[in-house]
Amino acid sequence: MLRYIAKRFLIMLVTILIIVTLTFILMHAIPGSPFNQERGTSEAVQANLEAHYHLDEPMYIQYLLYLKSIVTFDFGPSIKQPTSTVNDLLGRGFPISLELGLVSVIVAIISGILLGIIAALRHNKIIDYAAMAIAVLGISIPNFILATQLIQSFAVTWQILPAATWSSPKHMILPVIALATGPMAIIARLTRSSMLEVLTQDYIKMARAKGLSPYKIVFKHALKNALMPVVTILGTLLAGILTGTFVLEKIFAIPGMGKYFVESINNRDYPVIMGTTVFYSAFLIVMLFLVDIAYGILDPRIKLHKKEAE
């Protein structure tokens, strides 16, 4: 197990290095500069700005400077918000995105699994159709439309919830609903189909024959196996949601880190692009790793060190 983790860790480092290099090449390949503005700037001013951020150095020096900044995890100041360092931005934004993301994921998992189980147990009955109708709606309505509609109804028309910003638990309700609905629908559908499959298997029939209570059958025997596909998507889902979502954070004016992914590229804010990329890829890789570990725990037949042999 330890050897496996060590090896995975090395692979992670190599992956991150490749991602960083590709990002560096790509971001310098797009035309434009962080100092481009509609207003004209004199050449002297332009030159002073570039020197200030080491952008006048040759590319390989800039690349080495970036590698250094990654190793020391110090990306320097943002170009667009010069009074904050990239670490400040991540340090402020990530906890908020994490809070919103975690609550949403929990809501999505619990309600998704419950919805899936209910649908599977009442297969081809009204409740099944209703649950799946909700799921289809959840998948097909884009979350930004749902968000705008939620604000319009709850904040403007009925005035029972705040429209936007991030200052109290109450402010969380609408964004969590908007963010959780999509993943909830996906999880519900996955749970339903794998539950249906599991419920027809011999060991469940055996359990029924033994006269176990339906509650025990579902939660002790069926659910655990039915959850495997859900666990599979959990890694990417978590990484995506926990690091913030640009559109929803913008609509609800939530000061998370989602906006930096998009705006840093629009602004050609090189240090922020690198910072967010490294952070996100490291986060995603760790999540996928945890999912692999979770497989082993949920299903002892999957042996991690066997994977290693492959």
Binding site: L102, V103, V107, I109, I110, P169, M172, L298, D299, P300
Partner: peptide, 25 residues
């Protein structure tokens, strides 16, 4: 049993972390 324990821990974490979430859960 290990698997079950893991699930319970997960659930416990969810419930604890979801103190604020309960409003919306």
């Amino acid at each position: 049993k290990k698997g079950l324990a893991f699930l319970f821990i997960l659930l416990a974490v969810f419930v604890l972390a979801a103190c604020t979430a309960n409003e919306s859960a």
